[in-house]
Amino acid sequence: MAMLKDITLGQYFPGNTPLHRMDPRMKILLTIAYIVVLFVADGLVSYLAIIAFLCTAIAISHIKPKMILRGMKTLIFIIALTGILNMFYTKGEGKPLLSFWNVAIYKEGIVTAVFMIVRIILLISGTFMLTYTTSPLQLTDGIESLLKPLEKIHVPAHELAMMMSIALRFIPTLIEEADKIMSAQKARGADFESGGLLRRAKALIPLLVPLFISAFRRADELAVAMECRCYHGGEGRTRMRSLKFGTVDLWALLTVAALAAAVILLKVFPLEVFGI
């Protein structure tokens, strides 16, 4: 099933680029900073700066742009919906470009919609860059390390991180399994593609039930295997790769800081191009 293969969300593409070598904590923090910058950004110049930043990051990471587009495909509906809603519901000052019934589309609406779509695409691509270049265990390490201070108020940082990394590790395995079950059910005449939404949702039951049962069995076996390898929680655990801030991290920090400064400056002193 091609549909299932397309889900690349949460997948990791191993590599040895500066972006792969960055400290995961820095990557997480910078991703958050990037998202904030994205929402502060206003005006064409700001967006162009962010797009340039993202493209540079993608180029450095050697991740094929195709991979990012592929991940985007599953979210196309949300992106389109946001665009359409923004287009219809933004009221402009001038004369509407188009109006029928009681709906009117203004120039401002189209501009907002385009910006909104670009913003979501940039948001998704940015977070993809984090998961594509950071192995799940590293991501986990990063989150665990960042949440560590919260353990004082009983946030189970290690457990959360462990659960997340295992979930990520099993995504490809479960997709493969879903594929197999789907083929098996199709071979017995199951129909996953025709009918309305409700019928199709119902058709998924013979896929989901075996998938869930198998996932529980896997979880059980994995738990035993982890125990066999002396897993006993986060206490007294050491790491093969300890997290260390390096020069790459400093450069990344400076770059994002520069981007943030530029975007904030542009917000305070707007620089209009083509009247946008």
């Binding site: 192995s135 265990l137 990394s165 295997a225 390898r229 002396c230």
Partner: peptide, 27 residues
């Protein structure tokens, strides 16, 4: 499939010594 914990081979092999608190260089 059900006994590999990590998404990268070497990180998976390191899982047990990490649990045992083995010093980094030795892992």
């Amino acid at each position: 499939d059900n006994q590999i914990v990590a998404a990268v081979v070497e990180e998976d092999v390191a899982f047990a010594p990490e649990n045992l608190g083995v010093p980094q260089a030795e892992i």
